[in-house]
Structure formats: structure tokens, C-alpha cells
Design a protein around this nucleic acid. Structure first.
Lengths: 230, 230
DNA sequence: ACTGTTTCTTACCCGCGGGTAATATACGGG
DNA sequence: CCCGTATATTACCCGCGGGTAAGAAACAGT
């Protein structure tokens, strides 16, 4: 065998007989990258651990050096996506701006995450494939996202940047549109991810804006009706 | 209700056959009703044919009198939901009104379908669980729905009831919100299905409306141009 | 080099679940 | 009363795939 790694299809730390000494974490990540790709391509149940291992040039039991089982791999894929969304929320929360500005920012960032593999995990994977324990973690995290959407809308109504509306349903409508991106978006498609994000930010908020949608809505509304539900 | 001709007294030789066939169809439907419930409750892969049979007080092989296999059951559940949406589209297409009016109608009807079990099948089931043949049918049907959304938006822009916008992305955003209903709606929830449908129709179109959308949306603009399609 | 530890492979287990074969029961018709 | 058909049951097959046991390589430390 010549020692050259030659052309490998993807970046795999396990070149057949070559440098196998890489940090453990990098290998773990490589497993997750490969796994999330396959889970999205074929679906979780149709993807076998052999599939994952084969694409990494290793064998199935080797995976058990890094993960307890298939469901843990699934969970960690999900966790990476969730972490990215959490970061967005924390960042927005620590910043300022009107409710509408925060909402727009969240929409843009969330849409961008949805165009990535780990972002898609958040909406394409079935929580029922997880253990009871992990399922609770997911449920809590989902609640956090939902709360962020509702909070920004509520703040927007209070500061006058968003017109009164049903907060719950508006949050559902917006989150639904965004989550659905994870189902149809493909990197090879006609429209790049950034465009989608900014377009969605406009499209999804122009119905909520207090005045004309594309302008800075700093004007306090004439009548601040009690928002919320009916 | 009773389709049999003069079912009362006369012993038509066709009666036994008819009643038997009807009984068969009813059983088929019962299987589908049970199956779709379980598929939604537990997920397709976690639901075994034994589960389905058990809930019907029969045994697994009995199911094979009515269906060729598990994937056919899945497909037929999907097909029922699809048929309902198709009916909506056909009805709207055969009627009149502005593009916006048609769009609103589709949103309402589609949202209502999404709150039913068979409607949820359209978005909760994975097409990759179907045979190649059926998968193509599904793909064609999905395309039809997408085309309907885009057509109504385009007509609306042409007749002035909808302000100019990116048709493709707007259709995606609306369909995404609606499809997502199938993921979170539960009949026992706080808000009934009808409310969701009407609220969504307002929320999703107020950003698109040419003029104010809030109260008087159905008023046609100055001139009603003929739409593109018939 | 020896030795203990980590990493990875070969070979295997085994339970689950879709699907089938053989057969029993129900029932209408002649 | 017997036969044909439709319907259902019991018992079984078997392939797939997650998971494990035992041991081989690689590697680090002394």
C-alpha cells in the first residue's frame, strides 16, 4: 500500500491504514456528522449503524467506543442543533431593541439554522426514538424556543412595534413556517439559505407590523388594545 | 345511507353479495382508522401489525385479507387525506372569486383537514416508507397542492387582491404554517380546529393583502381582471 | 522491551416483526 | 346436505439490525 491517503470521499479520520491518531472528540464529531447526514438522507429507522460505520471506514462495534447506542447518537445530533438555537436566543435576549426587532432577528437566525443538517434534526427526527430521559430534555428545550417567540411578540405588542394579535397562534404560525424549511430545503436548490432567511423574516412579520411592514415601526399605536386572546 | 335497492323485503339475489361487499369495505375502513391512529400515536415503525390487529380484536394475518402489506395500509391512509385536499382544490377551482378569496378558502379548508387524523398523514408520514410506485403518486399529489397555492397567489397578484411578492416563498411559508398544524394539533387541546383554521386564514394572508386585511377582506378591488386559469 | 490501556475487528447472539402456509370456521347457493 | 368461497386462526419462517464478547492492534509510559 502506498502511504498516501489519496482521495477520500469525505473527511474521515479513519483512513484505512493511515493516521488513526486523532483526538477523540474529532472522531466523535465525525461520527455525528456522518450519522446526521444518513439520518436525514434515509431516515433514522432505515439507517443502520453499519451504514454509519461503513461510511467512516470502520466497523459497527467501533462506534460503541464513543456512544452508548443508536439513540444516543440521535440525541447528540439533535443537541448540537438545539445548542445553536439556544445561542441565538441568549444572544438576542442579552441585546436590546423592540419586540419586533428581536422577533425578526430570531426568525433570520432560526431560518438559517434550519438550512443546516443539525438544524434539520430539530424537526425531522422523532422524539419518540429517544429514551424517556432525553425526551424530557427535548421537550424542555422546545418549550424554551416557543417561549422566546411568544415573549418577543408580547414585548412587541407592549412597546407598540407589533400590532395586537393572538400571541399563541402567531407564534405557532411563524414557527411552523420556519420549521417546515427543515423539511424542504436542500443545499443544492435554487435559492441559497441566506435569501430564505431574510425573505422569511419579511414575509412572516409584515402581517404583524404595527404600521407599514418594511419600515422601522417606532410609532406608538393610537390605541393599545389589550392583546392576548380575544 | 343504505345504497341497496329496495332492501326491505324482497330477497334479491344480489343482496347477499352487496351486503357482504359492504361489510368488507367497512372492515377495510375500520382497519385504516385504527392504523392511522396508531401510526400517529406511536409512529409508523414502532407500530406493529399485531398492534393494529389487537386493537381490532383480530389477529395479524387477518389483515392480509384486506391489504397486501404494511406499506399499503400506510399509503391508503395517506390517500384518504390527499383525496380530501384534492376535493377542496377542485371545488375552489370550479368556483369564482379573486385570487385572495381562493387562497383564503384553501387555507381554511386545508387547515381543517390538518386537524384530522387522515390529514395529519399527509405531513407526518415518511414517503420513504412507501414503494417506489406509490412514492411517485405522492410526489405528484404534493406538487398539485403546491401548484394550487402558487396559482391562487399569482391570480391574486394579477387581479390586484394580493400585493406583489415572491410567489414561491410565500407559498412555502403558508404551506409550512399549515403543515405544521398536523404536528402539534391535538383534538383535546385548548383551541378547537375551526378556530385555528379561521385564525390562520387571517394571520397568513394579512401580510399579503393589497389593502387593509383586518376586517373587510373580501371586497374586490376596483377592477376584477380575469385570472389566469379559466 | 514489557505492560497496561485504549481502540478497533471478527464473530456471534437474539428478539422483533413483516410476511406465509396450512387449516379451521362461517355462510350462502344449489 | 354438501360444496365453494370468503374470512379468520394457529403456528411458523427468516432476515434484519441493535447490541455484545473476546481478542487483536496500536500506543504510551517506565
Amino acid at each position: 500500500m502506498d502511504g498516501s491517503p489519496s482521495s477520500a470521499t469525505s473527511q474521515s479520520p479513519w483512513m484505512p491504514f493511515e493516521s488513526r491518531r486523532r483526538a477523540r472528540d474529532e472522531k466523535r464529531e465525525a461520527v455525528l456528522r456522518t450519522a446526521v447526514q444518513l439520518f436525514l438522507e434515509q431516515g433514522y429507522h432505515r439507517t443502520t449503524l453499519n451504514d454509519v460505520a461503513e461510511r467512516l471506514n470502520i466497523t459497527k462495534p467501533a462506534l460503541y467506543n464513543y456512544f452508548r447506542g443508536k439513540d444516543e447518537i440521535l440525541f447528540e445530533c439533535w443537541a448540537i442543533g438545539q445548542e445553536r438555537v439556544d445561542d441565538c436566543i441568549d444572544e438576542i435576549d442579552s441585546g436590546g431593541g423592540t419586540g419586533m426587532a428581536k422577533l425578526r432577528k430570531l426568525i433570520v437566525r432560526y431560518a438559517e439554522v434550519m438550512t443546516t443538517d443539525y438544524g434539520k434534526s430539530l424537526v425531522r427526527f422523532d422524539v419518540r426514538d429517544l429514551t424517556e430521559h432525553n425526551r424530557k430534555i427535548v421537550a424542555t428545550a422546545k418549550k424554551k424556543i416557543d417561549r422566546a417567540f411568544r415573549r418577543y411578540i408580547r414585548e412587541g405588542i407592549e412597546d407598540g412595534s407589533i400590532r395586537p394579535c393572538d400571541i399563541k397562534l402567531s407564534a405557532f404560525a411563524i414557527a411552523g413556517s420556519l420549521n417546515w424549511i427543515g423539511h424542504w430545503y436542500q443545499p443544492g436548490g435554487a435559492l441559497p439559505g441566506g435569501d430564505i432567511a431574510s425573505e422569511f423574516a419579511i414575509r412572516l412579520t409584515e402581517g404583524l407590523a404595527a404600521k407599514s411592514s418594511r419600515r422601522k415601526a417606532a410609532k406608538p399605536p393610537t390605541r393599545v388594545k389589550r392583546g392576548g386572546k380575544r
